[in-house]
């Protein structure tokens, strides 16, 4: 698997309600909740672009853009 992907995390802080689902199920521990209980990307370089956070977000607050 080539590491040629360019992955961009777009997080809509206004929509995020801080439920923590994305953080819990991220297979690479890329995400965490900040002091305001909003999700943020702390280890973007580890992201494998599986998009599970985007798919599981109940608030439609995460978009993962992948450029091959």
């Amino acid at each position: 698997m080539g590491k040629s992907k360019l992955i961009k995390h777009i997080i809509n802080r206004d929509w995020c309600k801080g439920c923590g689902i994305c953080v819990e199920f991220c297979p690479q521990n890329v995400l965490e909740l900040d002091e305001q209980d909003k999700v943020r990307t702390t280890r973007p370089e580890s992201c494998i672009g599986c998009k599970l956070c985007e798919l599981r977000c109940p608030d439609l607050a995460i978009e993962i853009h992948i450029k091959e």
């Binding site: 206004d14 929509w15 309600k17 439920c19 923590g20 689902i21 798919l55 109940p58 608030d59 439609l60």
Partner: peptide, 17 residues
């Protein structure tokens, strides 16, 4: 948006899917 559902409500995931 943000919608009216509670934090972590499954209905948002259904909407998403």
């Amino acid at each position: 948006f943000p919608h009216m559902w509670c934090p972590g409500c499954g209905h948002g995931i259904v909407l998403n899917g």
